[in-house]
C-alpha cells in the first residue's frame, strides 16, 4: 500500500540533516565517554521498504546487539543503537575494564550497553529537539541481542499500521582506535503520524 504522505527529495534532505546534527552530538558524547576520537558518516534518510530494512544492518539473520529507546511527546518514534557483537564487547571492555569478554553478555555488561545507548540516543534527541523546537520524552533503554530482523521488527510496527515502508534515518559511527571493533549504526525511525510534526518543526 502507498504511504499516507508524499515523500520528496526535500524531506530526504531535511531528515538527513536532522540525522547529521543528531549523530554529531551523539559522536561528541561517545568521544567524551571513551576519551578517543569518534567519526560519523553522513546520515542517509529515506523511505525504506520493509523488505530492505534488514540489509541496513547486515541481513535478517545477522547477529546484532540493539539498544532501543521509544520516543513519545511531540514526536513518536524509535531510536536505536545497533552494534555488531564484537563492537558491543569492545565497547563494554572500554568502559568496564574489569568485565570479562565471554560469549554471553553479563547483566552488568547489558546495563553498560543500555547506558551507552542512552547517552548516545539522548544526545541525538536533544540536538533534534533543539533544532525542531519539539519536546521529546525518551523511554528507558532496552537491550536485545539476536537476529537483526527480530530485533528491529517492533520498531517497524507504527509504520506497518499504515504502509509497507518506514522512514529511516541511519548514520554510521566508528572510532579510529580500538573501542569499536566494527562500525555501529544509529537509526532514527519516526512514526508516520509524526512525520508532519517533524517536518513542520523544520519549516517554522
Amino acid at each position: 500500500m502507498r504511504s499516507p504522505f508524499v515523500w520528496t527529495r526535500q524531506h530526504a534532505d531535511l531528515l538527513s540533516e536532522v540525522g547529521n546534527i543528531g549523530a554529531g552530538h551523539a559522536a561528541t558524547a561517545l568521544s567524551e565517554l571513551l576519551q578517543q576520537p569518534v567519526r560519523v558518516s553522513l546520515s542517509n534518510a529515506r523511505l525504506c521498504p520493509f523488505a530492505e530494512i534488514a540489509e541496513v544492518v547486515g541481513g535478517p539473520e545477522a547477529l546484532i546487539v540493539g539498544v532501543l529507546i521509544r520516543v513519545s511527546g511531540d514526536l513518536g518514534g524509535h531510536i536505536l543503537l545497533i552494534l555488531p557483537p564484537a563492537s558491543a564487547r569492545s565497547l563494554v571492555a572500554a568502559v568496564l575494564p574489569v568485565e570479562s569478554l565471554g560469549d554471553e553478555f553479563t547483566e552488568l555488561s547489558v546495563s553498560a550497553l543500555a547506558e551507552i545507548g542512552n547517552i548516545l540516543c539522548g544526545a541525538y534527541l536533544t540536538a533534534v529537539s533543539e533544532l525542531t523546537l519539539r519536546r521529546f520524552v525518551p523511554s528507558v533503554p532496552a537491550v536485545a541481542c539476536d537476529m537483526a530482523l527480530s530485533v528491529l521488527d517492533v520498531s517497524l510496527l507504527p509504520a506497518g499500521e499504515v504502509s509497507d515502508d518506514v522512514i529511516l534515518v541511519d548514520t554510521q559511527v566508528e572510532t579510529e582506535q580500538s573501542a569499536l571493533k566494527e562500525p555501529c549504526l544509529l537509526l532514527l525511525l519516526p512514526d508516520p503520524q509524526s512525520f508532519q510534526a517533524l517536518t513542520e518543526g523544520l519549516f517554522p
Binding site: 540493539g66 532501543l68 521509544r70 523511554s139 528507558v140 532496552a142 536485545a144 521488527d153 517492533v154 510496527l157
Partner: peptide, 16 residues
Amino acid sequence: GAQMFKLPGKSDLMRI
C-alpha cells in the same frame, strides 16, 4: 510472537 525488549510499563507496542 516474542517480546524482544523488556521496557517497563504495559505499552501495547511492547506486548505486540
